[in-house]
Amino acid sequence: MSLFYQFVFYVFGLVAVVSACIFVTRKSPVAAALWLVNVMFSLSALYILLDAQFIGAIQVLVYAGAIMVVFLFVIMLLNLGQPGQLVDTRGVLPWLGSGGVAIVVLAAVLVRLPRIEAVDALQLPPETLEVATRAAGAVAPVATPLFTTYLLAFEVTSVLLLVAVVGAVVLGRRRGEMMGGGGHGRGELVGADEVLVHGR
């Protein structure tokens, strides 16, 4: 394993961690979102270094490109960047508490991690992924199990996406808005905000 590889790996790892730390401490949601995008990019690089080139690509496309854009879009839609909406954090105690918990957990992981033994029987021979990627490209080795072994899960996921689309549309409507321009008569469909307010 080349020194260059290790260097690059650590750099991206550190960038990801530092960006994450900055991300959680930003007051402004817009700044936080941008730092999170930075984390996403770093992770994408790590994926590629870990021989998951396809995942690295869709990490950039889906997360950095799509999801984070939606976040920014919502932030701007709601005008959360203005000073009145800059919600403060909870104060020192939660920070200390959660930070302490996090340190304890990480310490435990660090103590424990060297002692974790990979299950040998399940392990592939070294370099298997590299060899497979070289032979069939980055997409096919991922696609084959996705469309064979995990076909059912894949289909269910597609249904989940459909439901999410419908749900997002329903929840995002204004009160009394009708689908497809039917328009007459308010409140035939109960708006999401009504549900949220009245708990129905």
Binding site: I58, Q59, V62, Y63, A66, I67, V70, F71, V74, L77, L78, Y150, A153, F154, T157, L160, L161, V163, A164, V165, G167, A168, V169, V170, L171, G172, G191, A192, D193, L196
Partner: peptide, 19 residues
């Protein structure tokens, strides 16, 4: 799969936040 779920979650969650 996780990414798909995250995307779905983002869509619905953000819609809730908007509401």
């Amino acid at each position: 799969f996780v990414m798909t779920v995250a995307a779905a979650e983002a869509a619905v969650g953000l819609a809730i936040i908007i509401a």
